[in-house]
Each structure stands twice: as structure tokens, then as C-alpha cells.
Design a protein around this nucleic acid. Sequence first.
DNA 1: AATGAATGAGGGTTCATTCAT
DNA 2: AATGAATGAACCCTCATTCAT
Lengths: 203, 203, 203, 203
Amino acid sequence: MNDQPRLEDRITQAAERLFAQEGFAATGMRAIAQLAKVSIGAIYHHFSGKEEILEQIVREEIERRQEFLEGLRQRGLPLKDQIERLVKMHFDLLQERGDVARLFFRERFDPSPSLRVKIQDLYGNVAGYVAEIIKQGITAGEIRPCSPLLTAYEMLGMVEAVSLRALGEDETAVQFRNEGPQELATSLWLWLHIDRGGEKAHA
Amino acid sequence: MNDQPRLEDRITQAAERLFAQEGFAATGMRAIAQLAKVSIGAIYHHFSGKEEILEQIVREEIERRQEFLEGLRQRGLPLKDQIERLVKMHFDLLQERGDVARLFFRERFDPSPSLRVKIQDLYGNVAGYVAEIIKQGITAGEIRPCSPLLTAYEMLGMVEAVSLRALGEDETAVQFRNEGPQELATSLWLWLHIDRGGEKAHA
Amino acid sequence: MNDQPRLEDRITQAAERLFAQEGFAATGMRAIAQLAKVSIGAIYHHFSGKEEILEQIVREEIERRQEFLEGLRQRGLPLKDQIERLVKMHFDLLQERGDVARLFFRERFDPSPSLRVKIQDLYGNVAGYVAEIIKQGITAGEIRPCSPLLTAYEMLGMVEAVSLRALGEDETAVQFRNEGPQELATSLWLWLHIDRGGEKAHA
Amino acid sequence: MNDQPRLEDRITQAAERLFAQEGFAATGMRAIAQLAKVSIGAIYHHFSGKEEILEQIVREEIERRQEFLEGLRQRGLPLKDQIERLVKMHFDLLQERGDVARLFFRERFDPSPSLRVKIQDLYGNVAGYVAEIIKQGITAGEIRPCSPLLTAYEMLGMVEAVSLRALGEDETAVQFRNEGPQELATSLWLWLHIDRGGEKAHA
DNA sequence: AATGAATGAGGGTTCATTCAT
DNA sequence: AATGAATGAACCCTCATTCAT
């Protein structure tokens, strides 16, 4: 029975998949128990209820992204590269963990406050980090003056909209998947940075 | 008995509010009936089921936006003004019809295909229209060459991200509500248009 | 709109078909209204409810059979022929009006007393008539002494069991349909009549 | 809590009674739960739905009768005794398990195929067994040549018709209950067997 | 720690019937 | 006579959760 990771992880992994595929509301505890090969009772030994499972998933995802962002920050890369990587992170996460990404997009507007707040925390967290980058860019004279946080939301919104549209299998999705990351990175840089020393911004 | 709008409208209005506040899945027919002051049976007399109520809400919203977009197109405004108005439309819709907006943002990623498809249709519809504007701008030499559809999604994503963050009552939300529309319009124009005749784009 | 028989008949005909095909409980008033091309309200103008429609169907069927039995009685046929015709009547009714026959077999045991009583009346009526024939046969010395009513039920049971098994489309049903009437008539006569004057009963 | 039989049996017993008294379609799960003194949920814990309860009832009844028939066959009784006991079995089952008998008679013609097929299986099973007895009787020269299956249906039909009429409390029912079994056994034997060696069949 | 039988409120939907028109 | 919108109780079933084992 221990041929798998810890029982708690089996539960969150099963739940993650089902929440994303079927929806949080539509996923039953029985389904989670079945997929995790665990008894229903066992779930309630580790979690106080369905919502707590989701909370744990969110918490783990927050940590995962924070680690990524922290790593990015510490590398001291040029601004342009940092932006490029941020964009890439979104696309990669959507490919590797598309289920959970979709789950987040959906539950971000969940009516249950406790849940929504946690997911929006994650979002605010990422936005805050991006805003920080922008602020530094402004200070360094690389980015045109603007409201860092507002601009961060704009950036994230752009990336998300394209990423999400890239999820399907239709022609547009495929195109977006192929061209999206590069196009986004170029667009963003073009939009943010200050054209110095006569270089043509739109060259 | 006719001191209220048509029964069908009372139902959709009640459903709209509840779907947005509680979620589509979490909203019961009984709750809709109660809020609409209608018997459950009456709902089924006008709609084949819960999903059809949502369909109607979506359909109406599509029509509402299409009318707006059509009106915008026919006015023959300068490109910059069109974009400004598009942005404003989003913000206004979020204030006047915040419920339905939230509903759409949430259910856009619902796993139930019938639901998702309907809402994504609305989104694709708007995106298509924006892409059309962009294409015309490119032809007219006012907008830098780019993939119109991808850029449309970027635009909509930017506006949405800011609009959504502007929904709450915290300090940031208030700020976004005040500065957002103008900032977005400026940003977008700055980002899209071609700097001609020696004007400084970032002046 | 009067391109059909009386509205009342349209209703009973539609109901008859649906009751037989779908079951009494499973048939909705809306379905009857639809098939009869009549409004629901109109049905309630002519019948007090669903049960009364069934009652009317039963009543009509009772009359139909009573007419047949009355006609048979008045013809003064030899006993053997009367039995032959009784058997044939069952088979014919099952072919021509199989729906309603099945309906009767089913609802004969319906829990609703008012309904059951009516259908059992029909059955008792037919049994009484058959018992009468048997009694006359005994008096005439053509039929062996026996309890006429009990024997009548035995006879009807035999015929019914074979008729019902003959309803399907499987091999056995087809065989029963082909051989049943003759075999039943022969069997019955063999079973009932007194072997007089040295004729071989089992010849 | 275990002062009663197994919960599953309580459910089938309650359902059996209600199905018979009220009809399968007219019996609600709530009523079953109430009579069985069980929660609705518990029913669904043991059965996949209402139909499965019926299935189980049918299955048990099939087994009960098969055991009886198997026991009868293995006793190696004279043919006449076997028939006598078959008839008696029907009457006894109608007294001891009148509910389920009525249930079967009614639902045998239910339009829902899944239901009908299950019950007709039971019937075909019994008929097949009776046909087997008849076939052996023919081979042994004790029964006149005939189509065994058709004759089996005739036999069962006779017995059933009398049994059913014997169910009520009116005068005829009482009479049938008293005289029926003997009269049926005598009739059947008279009808089936070959008069050998000059005995008078109708003596 | 782990099980899974049991709970019963609530899910969406259908129904026979009523009644204003 | 005829309509069909409206009613709300009842339908079968699923749910998250509890608890004796």
C-alpha cells in the first residue's frame, strides 16, 4: 500500500486532477477517494473537508511559484530576460500543469470567500513580484514611468489571455502556443522599455 | 400580476445574480424560483433546465455587447477613440453588470463543455471584433504590424486583469477604478500605434 | 380541426396507445395531449383526470367484448364451434388490439381499486359467459361434469397464457401464433367433452 | 441495531410489499426507506437504484422456485405427483408470498423492457421446467403426444388463472382456494395422461 | 490510522391538475 | 368549449460528512 507517496499527497494529487477536469463543485469525495485509492474516512483523517483539500493544493502551488520567482530574482538577470522568463513560466506551467492552472483561473472567482481569498493571494503575490521588477526597471531608467502595480496587472493579463487561448487544440490555439511566448515577450518589452540613444523601438 | 417585467426576465435576472454570487453549480433552482418570486414549475415552463437559463443570459449578453460594438464600428471614430471606448465599455459593464461579468469570468473555465463553449463564444466574438479594428488600423498605417487576433487577446487580457482587480473595495481596487480606464487607454495606444512624423511615442 | 373523430375519441385513442406502450403510470397528460393534438385543458374538460380516461378505455373494451359474446351466444352454434371461436377471439384481439390487451393484463392487478375492479369486472364478465356455455354443455351431456366457473377460469387462463407468449417476435412466439389457436381449441375440446359412443378421444 | 435482519433484506422486504401493493412505478424510494426503517442514502448504499431492488427481488424469487423445482425433480416422484405438487406450489406461493406474486403478475407486462425481461425470465424458467416434465412423460408413454412447451404454458395459465381468482375474500375466491388445487391437479392429469389398459379416463 | 456503512438534506426535474383568459 | 401558463408536491438520486468499528 505504500508503493505511492504519502497518503496525503495521493489525495491532493487525485483531487487536483479531478477538480481541474470536473470542477470543484462537481467533484465528489467518493471520486477523490476512488482515484487516490483511499477510503473516504481516510480523507477526513487528513483534511477537514473538501475545501481544505483545495486549500492545500493552492498552498502548494503558491509555494511552487514563489520558489520560481525567488529563484528568478536572485539570478540578477537583465530586465528583458526576466520578463522573457516570466512569460515562459506561464506557458510552461500551462503545459505541464494545465489542469491546475485552469483550476486556478476558475476558482479565482469562486464565491466561497475563504477559497477566493487564498487564490487571489497567489495572484497578488505574483503581481507584487512583477511590480517590483517594474519598479526597479523604472529606477534604473530602463522602463518608462508608470504605475508599477497597475502595469503588472496589465502584463499578467496579457500573458494569461494568450496562454488560456492557447490551451485548446483548434488552429488558433496551436498558433498561439507556437508564437505566443515570443510575441508576448517582444510586445511587452517594446511597450515597457524606454527607447534610448536613438534605437528604433519598432525596428 | 403584471406589476413586474415578463416572468422570463424575472427568472433570468434572478438567476444572473445568483449564478454570479453563488456560482452556477451551487445555485439551486429553488433559490432562483424564490428570488424571482416564481414557482419552480414556472421556470420549467419557460426553460428546459438550469443550463438553458444560463444560455439565455449569455445570449443576451452577447447581443448587448454586439450592439455596442456594432454601434462603435458604425460611428467611424478615430482608432484611438475606439480603443478608449472599448476599454471604457469593459469598465462600465463591470460596474453596471458586475454580477454577470464575474459569472462569465468564472464559468469561462467550467469543465462542462456546453457551458464553457457558450461563454467562450462570447469571448471569441468580442476578440474577433477587436482583431478587426486592429487589422483596419494596420491597413491604415496607424497600428504597427502584428498578429491582429493575438494582439486582441493581449488587449482584452490587459483590460480584464485591471478591471477584475478593480472590483473589490480595498485601496488598490479603488485606485484601479479611478486610474484604470485612462491608464489602459493610454498604454494601449502607446503600445499599438506607429510613431509617425517624428513625434516621440513616449513623450 | 375536425378532420378527426370527436375530440373525446382522439383523447382515448391517444391515451390507449400511450398507456399500452409506456404504461399508465409512465404516461403523462402532456404526452396524451400532444399525441391527441389537443390542449391539456381540453382533456380536463372531457375527463376528470387521467384515471377517468383509462376507465373510459376499459368501458369501451368491455362493451366491445360483450357485444362479441352476445353475438356468439345468439348464433346458437354447436358447443365445439363456440369454444373454437372464443379461442380465436382472444388471438384476434391480441393481434388487432394488442396494445390494449397488454394494458388490461397489466392493469388487472393495478393497486388502484377503482381501476382494478373495473378491469376485473370485464374479466369476470367473460368468465361468467364461458361458465354459462359450459353449464349448458354439461346439461346437454356434451361436457363432463365439473364446476363451470372454475373450469371457465382454467380455460381462459390456458388461452391467455398461450396468447401472451405469442406476442413477441422470437421463435417460440411465432410458433405459438401459428399453432396456438388450433392446438388450444383441440386441447380444450379434448379436455372438456365426454367421449361418447366409443369415439376415441385421443384419436 | 442488529435486532433486525440484514439491512439489505429489510429493504427488499419493504420494497416487495410496496411494489405489490402500490405498484413499482408508484412506489417511491422514500416510502421504501420509511417502511424499512432505513435512510434513503442507505438504500443507495446497497442498491444502485429502484430497479436493482426489483432485480434482487426477482432474483431471489427465481432462486426460490428453482430450488423447489430442482428438489421436485430429484425426488423422482411419479408424474402425477409431480404435477400435483407443481399446482400446490403455485397455491402455496400465492398464500405465503401473495405480494410478490401479484407484483409479478402485474409487472410482467410492464412496458419498461428491463423490468419485463427480468420477470419474463422467471416465467420462462418455470415454463421450461414444466415442459421438461411433460417431455419425459411423453417419452415414458404416460402423457399423450403434444408440444411440451405450448402445453406447459397452457398448464401454467390454468393454474394461474385459478390462483389469481382465489386471491380475494369473496365467495368465489374462498371456493377456489378450497377446491382449486385438487380440481386443477385432477383436471390436468385427466387432460394430459394417456388412458391405458381400458381404465376410464373420466371415471 | 483507517474503514465504509449510514445519514438525510438537497440536487434538478416531472407531474397531474388548476384557472384566468 | 378551449387554451396553456402556472403551481408546488413528489420524483429518483447524489452529496459531504459522521461514527461505530
